[in-house]
């Protein structure tokens, strides 16, 4: 893995170690690293853009690429969670590089396209990888995107729910196009995060 193997582990405890000087992570304000995995073309970057900017219009201007974005949400219990979202390249040839990205991530969102069974099997591959190499207390979410195209559906909800339950994941179907369930996805993740009092031990 070349110099990759000597990546510092110091920022691995993403909940405690990710302070950039402007905000501090405490029990009220969490900062988490979220890694986005999934085949290319399942709409990973669209999900993020929907969440971060509340828009889908591909022609509207954004200032930077969608590969790294951050967004803060407020929870009912008056805590805030800042997500730092790391996108990964989904093409097969880059699969071996993924561990560099999910190292130290507190959350992994594994996305697939409900109209492509191939992308679903790819999602299963990522789940296995994360179970093998990811940090043990990582929060995983399985996301079936493009739910608006239900007439072309090939991956049934039952299959996905069953798989998610078996692997202790949270499952949701979203549509980046119609914004369905996008915010719910991130709110649900935020609720499932371990509180810092637990993590920082």
């Amino acid at each position: 893995m070349g110099c990759a193997s000597s990546v510092p582990d110091r920022n691995a405890g993403s909940l405690t170690g990710l302070n950039d000087g402007s905000t501090a992570s405490d029990s009220k304000n969490l900062k988490v690293k979220l890694v986005l995995l999934g085949d290319s073309g399942v709409g990973k970057s669209c999900i993020v853009l929907r969440f971060v900017r509340g828009q889908f219009d591909p022609t509207s201007k954004v200032t930077v690429g969608a590969s790294f974005l951050s967004q803060t949400i407020a929870l009912p219990d008056s805590t805030t969670v800042k997500f730092e979202i790391w996108d990964t390249a989904g093409q097969e040839r880059y699969a071996a590089l993924a561990p560099l990205y999910y190292r130290g991530a507190a959350v992994a969102v594994v996305a697939y396209d409900i109209t492509s069974s191939e992308s679903f099997s790819k999602a299963k591959y990522w789940v296995k990888e994360l179970q093998k190499h990811g940090s043990p207390d990582i929060v995983m979410a399985l996301v079936g995107n493009k739910a608006d195209l239900h007439e072309n559906r090939v991956v049934s909800v039952e299959d996905a729910v069953e798989y998610a339950e078996k692997n202790g994941m949270f499952f949701i179907e979203t549509s980046a196009k119609t914004a369905d369930n996008i915010n719910q996805l991130f709110e649900e993740i935020a609720k499932r995060l371990p509180r810092p009092s637990v993590v920082s031990v």
Binding site: L36, S40, G41, G43, K44, S45, C46, V48, L49, P58, T59, K61, V62, G65, A66, S67, D87, T88, A89, G90, Q91, Y94, L97
Partner: peptide, 15 residues
């Protein structure tokens, strides 16, 4: 922007 495609994510960036 010029081709009216989705904004580039890591799928486009890393290659």
């Amino acid at each position: 922007l010029s081709s009216k495609q989705n904004p580039p994510g890591a799928d486009e960036f890393l290659p």
